[in-house]
Simulated assay, not measured.
Amino acid sequence: MSNSINLTINGIQHIGIPVTNMEASQQFYSRLGFSNVMQAPFTDNGGTGTCVMMRRGTMIMELYQLPEASLAEIRARSNGHVDHVAFDVDNIDLTFKTIKEAGFNILEPEPVFLQFWKNGCKYFNITGPDGERLEFNQVL
């Protein structure tokens, strides 16, 4: 590909799935051999949601439940929904700079810190041609 930018992506870090019942979703993925390796709250539209990272080997599924006020959209779906694919990167700031200079549609004004994992993580998202969300994430 002649117009490829110089960017290091280590692999898919996780796949994010919005859920309506965290307990049921954790039980479902546990039956498939995944285990909860990280759980943390987050804020969304003034409410508090829950994020759980379920791991099996090198695969991670991010299950997140939005606050009650934000769940209507998810409940209205009849066929589930993969929210985003996250790429693992070593240097989130350099990745952000490279993506910005290349002219991609970035959704955040700068990498966002979350108190996930032991020392937190930083991420940002871009959108693809059909609106798909691609996240770049560095676990700190």
Rank of each mutant, 00 (worst) to 15 (best):
S4D: 12
T43H: 11
L66W: 10
S4V: 13
I60E: 08
T95M: 13
T8P: 03
R77E: 08
I17D: 06
S30P: 05
N3Q: 08
L134Q: 08
A72L: 11
K97H: 12
N3A: 10
M38K: 08
T127D: 00
S70F: 08
I17L: 09
P67Q: 10
S4I: 12
H84G: 10
G16M: 04
T98G: 04
V82F: 11
E23Y: 01
C121S: 12
F87D: 01
D130C: 09
I15T: 14
I74H: 02
V52D: 00
N36V: 05
Q65K: 14
L66D: 00
M38W: 11
G11D: 12
P18R: 04
E73N: 09
E73V: 07
K100M: 05
F96Y: 15
C121T: 12
N119C: 05
V19Q: 02
N119I: 00
G33P: 09
N6E: 15
V139Q: 10
L66I: 05
K118Y: 03
L114A: 09
S35Q: 12
N21E: 15
F113W: 06
T20V: 13
T8S: 14
R55G: 05
A72W: 00
Q138H: 06
N105C: 10
L107D: 05
S35M: 11
P109G: 03
G33T: 07
N45A: 14
R56M: 10
N21W: 07
K97P: 04
S2Q: 14
T127L: 07
E135A: 01
D88W: 14
V112M: 03
K100S: 15
M22K: 04
V19T: 01
F96T: 12
F124T: 02
D88L: 11
F124I: 01
R77M: 15
C121W: 01
